[in-house]
């Protein structure tokens, strides 16, 4: 006889733990927002910042520099994180995040081309980046699925595609004029410098919509994680759900990339971290989103204020992510899951 009350008690304590963790993450995020808004070349008190924002006073540093930067950090972080988390869950492998299998670089190639050579405005750039990201995801998937789909083959194909796209990016950066190099460097690691307010509303709307859809779909995603057969038995339309989720993820990646460049490691790191903090047996869309935002803001704060030279956020997150990537690899290789 199974003791039901014990199981329910377990589930309950799980839920409480989940809520506590979410609250703590939200508090950390809030603290980081405050830090990013107040500290910098010129320091303001928190009251000054709040006062400025509420009274629509025209303080250039706060309104035109720090506010867009912080917002972009939060929403790009969320976008990369939930897109990465979805890829990892769908493909059943933490290494299958879009920044490792070449989807992000597909978007980056398009974005770099549009910005450096066509001088398109940001809205159009995002649109083209979305198309290119979707096309490269589709291409990589098609190339990887010959006589049956295999995640291993997908990852290897992705690594090849990544090399191809990086060569294209290098080529364009080399062709760009000398004074575009700082801009170009953004496309190699991700950077929050020079973000203007006009690009933000669209990003925010898209990220929020995606967040809602993904939370809504997370039950189906969880069923998919069990395996396609189980999912079908549970009444999930596997193909539709999978395509929809991948499409949303690609849109998120592409939009965020067009604004901040590919911020390294966020897509790859957030899912596993959230899984470790909460529970591996559920879809952690919200925790992953919070993790992504926290990582980007923390990385940006460290890169801007704590080091002797200013570094773009992508370099800091790349450094933070690298050891974790290697650690994950050691664990995965030892566990024999590849």
């Amino acid at each position: 006889m199974i003791d039901n009350s014990k199981i329910f008690a377990n589930i309950k304590s799980h839920r409480i733990k989940y809520k506590i963790i979410l609250t703590i993450m939200a508090i950390i995020l809030l603290i980081l927002v405050c830090l990013n808004m107040t500290i910098g070349e010129k320091n303001y008190s928190l009251m000054e910042v709040i006062h400025t924002l509420l009274s629509s006073e025209n303080n250039y540093i706060i309104v035109k520099l720090r506010l867009p930067r912080t917002l972009a950090g939060i929403f790009c972080g969320i976008a990369f994180a939930i897109a990465g988390n979805t890829f990892q869950t769908l493909l059943g492998n933490s290494l299958a995040s879009p920044d490792i299998i070449g989807v992000s670089s597909g978007s980056t190639v398009a974005a770099v081309f549009c910005i450096l050579f066509l001088n398109l405005n940001r809205g159009l750039v995002s649109f083209v980046a979305v198309l290119a990201g979707a096309a490269s995801a589709l291409l990589i998937y098609k190339l990887a699925s010959k006589d049956g789909y295999s995640t291993n083959r997908l990852i290897l194909t992705g690594i090849g595609a990544q090399a191809f796209f990086s060569a294209l990016i290098n080529w364009m950066i080399k062709k760009a004029s000398e004074y575009d190099v700082p801009t170009a460097m953004r496309w190699m690691s991700g950077n929050l410098n020079g973000i203007t307010t006009d690009t933000l509303p669209l990003l925010i709307v898209i990220v929020l919509l995606a967040l809602i859809t993904m939370t809504y779909l997370s039950n189906s995603l969880q069923a998919l994680e069990l395996g396609e057969n189980y999912a079908t038995v549970l009444g999930v339309n596997v193909d539709v759900t999978r395509s929809l989720l991948i499409l949303i993820s690609v849109v998120l990646i592409a939009f965020a990339t067009a604004i901040s460049g590919p911020i390294s490691s966020i897509a790859f790191l957030s899912g596993p971290i959230a899984g470790r903090l909460c529970s591996k047996n559920q879809i952690n869309t919200i925790p992953a989103a919070l993790t992504g935002a926290i990582l980007v803001l923390a990385g940006d704060f460290i890169g801007q204020n704590l080091l002797p030279t200013r570094y773009p956020v992508g370099i800091i997150t790349g450094i933070l992510g690298a050891p974790y990537l290697v650690y994950l690899l050691i664990k995965q290789n030892k566990g024999g899951s590849i």
């Binding site: 790349g318 992510g321 050691i330």
Partner: peptide, 30 residues
């Protein structure tokens, strides 16, 4: 890194280890 675990350094493990280490080193280079 790739030889850890069963089966020694299989192509997939070798490629992923190489890509991961390259990623890590690229950030250090920057």
């Amino acid at each position: 890194l790739a030889s850890l675990g069963n089966g020694g350094a299989t192509p997939i493990k070798l490629a992923i280890s190489g890509a991961a280490v390259s990623n890590a080193l690229t950030s250090l280079i920057s």
